[in-house]
């Protein structure tokens, strides 16, 4: 044991006498430096959570209480606002529309995006670069710019106020980002794995399903979450392309309700807003890491 004892043999031989001279504490090493880190972090937390907290607080109050009881913690918390939101037919239909359109867009995006991204990542073919450019460049097109042209297209196609049209539009909106992210992920999968599968006698389709896709589950999750979020939160295009409760989604419904109720019913509005956010938060809490890293990997490249 002695080799790892406290004292190596050399330590005993030459232990220097320690001259005691001045010993001072660096000011910056202490509380000041710690404050320089923790103060911004505290500010970040307040900045992020502040609006949520106020909104939650208001949503648990009765309309009359909002002005009478401005404190953060309600004197008489009530679920009344939430009940009234859920009882609204507009909310229910918008929720259903959001679910249908959200899942529709995410499924269609993956169904169309995965083969395309795989082709771009692994195949050599004539026109690949041009097609890639064509598929990716639209990421730079702002959605506000598409409101009118798509509105006119919808009217022409008699597809105005249709959920299917919204799903198709959102898929078109999402594909560039999805293809971009997926190409990156697919290219990161070592080619040797596919070559090994090929040597082992797997067909191309089997290889995709048994080798490539299982390895890209984090990527698919990231893309799915991004797609769902985008469809769930989209406002501008819904504003332009829908008219009735048959197809309008939550953000538009929220906007209409807010314009209709004005300043009279803050609890109702905030409860509505929070209910639209809640499903995303629940999903997000489970896969926060994928979202953060997926966004980054997409952004930094």
């Amino acid at each position: 044991m002695a080799v790892t004892q406290d004292h190596g043999p050399a330590a005993a031989a030459a232990r220097p006498a320690m001259p005691r001279t001045r010993r001072r504490r660096s000011l910056l090493g202490g509380p000041l430096r710690r404050a320089a880190i923790w103060l911004p972090l505290a500010a970040l937390v307040v900045w992020t959570l502040g609006p949520f907290l106020i909104s939650v607080s208001v949503s648990f109050k009765a309309p009359a209480q909002v002005f009478a009881d401005p404190g953060l913690i309600p004197d008489e918390p009530t679920l009344d606002a939430y009940k009234r939101v859920i009882d609204r037919p507009g909310f229910r239909s918008a929720l259903w529309n959001s679910v249908v359109i959200g899942f529709g867009s995410l499924i269609l995006t993956l169904l169309i995006g995965v083969p395309a991204a795989y082709a771009f990542a692994r195949f050599r073919f004539r026109g690949r670069h041009l097609m890639l450019l064509f598929a990716l460049l639209p990421m730079l097109v702002p959605k506000v710019g598409l409101m009118f042209p798509l509105f006119l297209v919808a009217v022409e196609l008699k597809a105005f106020d249709s959920r299917l049209f919204l799903i198709l539009v959102f898929t078109g909106m999402l594909l560039p980002l999805a293809v971009w992210l997926l190409i990156g992920f697919f290219q990161a999968i070592p080619r040797e794995l596919e070559e090994a599968a090929a040597v082992d006698g797997a067909s191309q389709l089997r290889m995709l399903f048994h080798v490539v896709l299982p390895l890209s589950i984090p990527a698919l999750l990231t893309v799915a979450v991004l797609a769902f979020r985008e469809a769930w939160n989209e406002f501008e295009l819904v504003l332009a392309l829908t008219q009735t409760s048959a197809s309008r989604t939550l953000p538009y419904e929220l906007y209409l309700m807010q314009s209709a109720t004005g300043i009279a019913d803050y609890p109702l509005q905030n409860a509505f807003a929070l209910l639209t956010i809640l499903p995303l938060i629940l999903v997000y809490l489970r896969i926060e890491r994928y979202v953060a890293e997926g966004l980054l990997s997409g952004a930094v490249k």
Binding site: H7, G8, A11
Partner: peptide, 13 residues
């Protein structure tokens, strides 16, 4: 040369 191993100075020579 100071030879170190496992956090311990083994020999200085």
């Amino acid at each position: 040369v100071a030879v170190m191993y496992d956090g311990v100075l083994q020999q200085l020579a």
